[in-house]
Nucleic acid binder design. Structure first.
Lengths: 189, 189
DNA sequence: CGCCGAGTTGAACTGAATCAAGAAACGTGG
DNA sequence: CCACGTTTCTTGATTCAGTTCAACTCGGCG
């Protein structure tokens, strides 16, 4: 919870009063490894801050092939936003890879906070802007970079993932098959 | 200007008073075809609403190859957000393809509006959320779809682009060479 | 009329997908 | 703590989508 406070304080100045109200609407939730944060077809009802742990998001096609779309980051909000914003069922699965401790606020509570506290609205805008930057970077990487470059970028930006996440998930996040990534790794080393 | 009002009104209810203040900070700007909205190295200082026209955004690599990253849409804000949010020079070029009429607000004015009008902060948040949805969709299309499918998607979502935009720009937006797209088109028809 | 950029088509090449099999690592129950 | 079965990773052979290089056509414009 303190980590969330720090995260927000880095972007905006929240008064004690506002923080007390806002933080009172969050609840802690701990998921064991291999459980599901969310499954496709369910609607995302929470905005969630990752205190500790790791979540993988993926979609499944008709043949049952999984494509990893993203991972959670400690000290950040996590991203089933399409369902959260639209209030429609999620296409994404959120799978807990290691025991994960989250703080979450319900959609309805968040809307109420948006209405009551100007600062929360601002936090929402700023956090969403950050997200656009991340997505734009990823868009550009698909258009201008090779699979090998995307792997090396990941290696630099999130080296811990390479330890904790099976190669096949990294592969589909990068946009190639596990076999192809295995060969890329061989080539590099 | 009325179009902007309608666009915003669709998402939130703005009082007349707020609209008068907010809209007073916008100015109209008309660019002729083949001019530049923005060049790489310049910093984006405006949030811009497209009333009429078409803008292409692209990056250039060291060898001078262009990659088209996106297009503007009439009745929407346009997207050199990475520079606008971070206040750093843009990597993107914004090239005017046909005569384009824009309404724009300066960064400083927008920040002032964010501070003075709660409703503007909300508009900012909601518009940014929409942007995340668009980017997420595109991310997914790169991970799970073929070049041919991305072309067909574009065909369905923005058929006017196929008329107005040279094939080579569409090709790089989709992520292939002009030759490859030419063959895809042949295959389809 | 001639030029130039855009689009098409062809041929050779390449990175990655697919199919398949074997090796290594992992987890679970005894 | 070991043994077994399952999952993950690697490696090889083949196929395929898309790239690259190159030549040619077409349409617009000076």
């Amino acid at each position: 919870m303190q980590r969330l406070h720090q995260f927000l304080q880095k972007q905006v100045d929240i008064s004690n009063e506002d923080w007390l109200l806002f933080s009172s609407r969050f609840e802690e939730k701990i998921y064991p490894a291999k459980s599901f944060y969310l499954k496709a077809g369910e609607t995302e009802n929470y905005l969630t801050f990752v205190d500790r742990g790791l979540v993988r998001f993926y979609v499944e096609d008709m043949e049952g092939n999984e494509t990893t779309v993203g991972f959670s980051f400690e000290g950040w909000f996590l991203n089933v936003f399409s369902s959260f914003y639209t209030r429609k069922p999620s296409m994404y699965y959120g799978e807990i890879l290691i025991e994960t401790s989250l703080w979450r606020i319900h959609y309805d509570d968040l809307q109420e906070m948006y209405n009551r506290l100007k600062i929360v609205e601002r936090i929402g805008r700023l956090a969403t802007e950050q997200l656009v930057l991340l997505k734009s970077e990823r868009e550009l990487s698909f258009l201008t970079k090779s699979a090998e470059e995307r792997y090396l970028d990941l290696f630099n930006k999130a080296p811990h993932l390479l330890q904790q996440v099976p190669l096949k998930y990294l592969a589909s996040y990068i946009g190639v098959t596990p076999q192809a990534l295995s060969r890329i790794r061989k080539r590099i080393s």
